[in-house]
Amino acid sequence: MDIRVDKDACVGCGLCVKDCPMHVYELQEKVSVPVRPNNCMGCLSCHEICPAQALEHRGIYAAKRHYIDIKVCEMLRKVV
């Protein structure tokens, strides 16, 4: 798995370090570093928890997301 952290965006909160069940990340000089990327199983919990949206996974399998209500999203897009 190719995991990238946007060093400029990362605020060093360590939430991804705590949340990742596979201990993929470590904080090094207040920035998250994916030290064990091959242990990642692609759950994307880290994406959901990162307040800075600093994470990027490449080569991941994206699960089906039929739950997204397109109509609601379209409406939201008009106001946000």
Binding site: M41, G42, C43, L44, S45, A62
Partner: peptide, 10 residues
């Protein structure tokens, strides 16, 4: 269950 995530569960 080991872990549940938005994209996959272990």
């Amino acid at each position: 269950i080991v872990h549940t995530g938005p994209n996959a569960c272990l």
